[in-house]
């Protein structure tokens, strides 16, 4: 028997680590990887809850999350490359294009 709480703890620790990465890292690519990590942790929770409750919806939603993550990867990488072309770096702290 696998306790639900254990899976939950694992998932949220990974989530918080991912969030921590977003907060401290300045490299846009690593921030992006952290986001993927967070998505992955949420996916684990979805599949686990699906298993525990017996409903399959959680797994389907996990699949949707993956699909959207793939789309996000395409867009995110395109943004990063075009930003790199413009500025010559991927330092988020120096990204001021949104600044008023």
């Amino acid at each position: 028997m696998l306790r639900m709480e254990v899976i939950y703890g694992l998932s949220l620790i990974m989530f918080v680590i991912g969030f921590f990465g977003i907060l401290v890292r300045r490299n846009a690519i690593v921030m992006f990887l952290s986001i993927e990590l967070m998505l992955n942790s949420v996916n684990i929770l979805f599949v686990a809850i699906s298993k525990a409750s017996g409903a399959l919806d959680g797994q389907v939603i996990a699949l949707f999350v993956m699909a959207i993550a793939a789309g996000e990867a395409a867009i995110g990488m395109a943004i990063i490359t075009s930003y790199y072309r413009k500025k010559g770096n991927v330092d988020i702290d120096r990204a001021q294009l949104l600044r008023w």
């Binding site: 907060l23 300045r26 702290d93 990204a95 001021q96 600044r99 008023w100």
Partner: peptide
């Protein structure tokens, strides 16, 4: 109010969390 909108991406991350 616009001073909240710094335009620095990490700041938005902080606000979210």
């Amino acid at each position: 109010v616009r001073r909240i909108q710094t335009g620095y991406i990490p700041d938005y991350g902080w606000l979210v969390i």
